[in-house]
């Protein structure tokens, strides 16, 4: 697992992928941050709108990290090297997952410097930033990001084309976002089951507690499970392909 992790981290920085991911997301993040706080019409230290925009941003940029993952290996046939090496398929999947996750953490750490400025130069019209909320939001971002990465890796096992892989991942994530809204359309007793199922599928419905600074154990378990399920499914794709 560590060999593949190292190789992936290296390839993020020898190909453009890692730099594009960090540059694009940090640039947009900095812009959004300043617009939503210091340069707001009424300057504020409230960052809730900032975090919801970042969540959307991650839906678009995290697939950049995962699009090559297994697609590229299949296209260049290097998957033959990986799959005939004495490693379990799941450890390969984990290596890919943790390398993308590391890149994501690097982004989160770099972007968190914004808050140091907000802390020092809190707008006069506003109270100091609410640390509980900020930490809550960060935890939520980490958890949701894990799910996005796992979904992205799963999609990349399905296609040899990395652009298809990226587009399908973004599409799938938006699908999950829309599902949240659809669930709310089914009102009344009759649709109770439909609502339950849709809510169960909805990644975003569980985001709220964290946003207000609460720590929701149920949601934590939910996000970890979703991540685990998609990593497991990625492994199954390889097993199935060996048989077909």
């Amino acid at each position: 697992m560590f060999a593949i992790y190292k190789k992936e981290m290296r390839s993020y920085f020898t190909t453009a992928t890692g730099y594009i991911f960090l540059a694009v997301s940090l640039a947009v993040t900095g812009f959004v941050f300043s617009i939503s706080t210091f340069f707001n019409q009424s300057p504020t230290s409230d960052t809730s709108s900032y975090f919801s925009i970042i969540l959307f941003l991650m839906m678009v940029v995290l697939p950049i990290l995962t699009m090559r993952s297994f697609s590229e290996e299949r296209r260049t046939k290097t998957d033959q090297l990986l799959l005939t090496s004495p490693n379990s398929i799941f450890s390969l999947v984990l290596g890919k997952f943790f390398s993308a996750f590391t890149m994501y953490i690097i982004y989160l750490v770099l972007s968190s410097f914004n808050f140091i400025f907000l802390y020092i130069y809190t707008p006069e019209t506003s109270s100091p930033p609410n640390m509980a909320m900020i930490i809550g939001n960060y935890i939520a971002l980490i958890l949701l990001g894990m799910c996005f990465i796992a979904i992205g890796i799963f999609v990349s096992t399905l296609t040899e084309n990395m652009f298809a892989s990226a587009v399908i991942t973004v599409g799938a994530l938006f699908g999950l976002l829309i599902i949240n809204g659809i669930g709310n359309l089914f009102t009344g007793e009759a649709f109770y089951i439909v609502r339950v199922v849709i809510n169960w599928l909805s990644l975003f419905a569980r985001f709220d507690a964290f946003v207000y600074g609460y720590f929701d154990i149920g949601a934590l378990v939910y996000y970890l499970s979703i991540t685990g399920i998609f990593l497991f499914l990625s492994e199954r794709v390889f097993q199935a392909r060996r048989l077909s």
């Binding site: 060999a3 190292k6 260049t76 290097t78 090297l81 005939t84 090496s85 004495p86």
Partner: peptide, 25 residues
């Protein structure tokens, strides 16, 4: 050695071989 050698063309020969070395632990 498969029919098409499974090479990472962005690596140097040494980097590639040392990756394979790690991969095979």
């Amino acid at each position: 050695l498969p029919e098409q050698p499974p090479l990472y063309i962005d690596m140097t020969v040494w980097e590639y071989l040392s990756f394979v070395f790690d991969l095979k632990s």
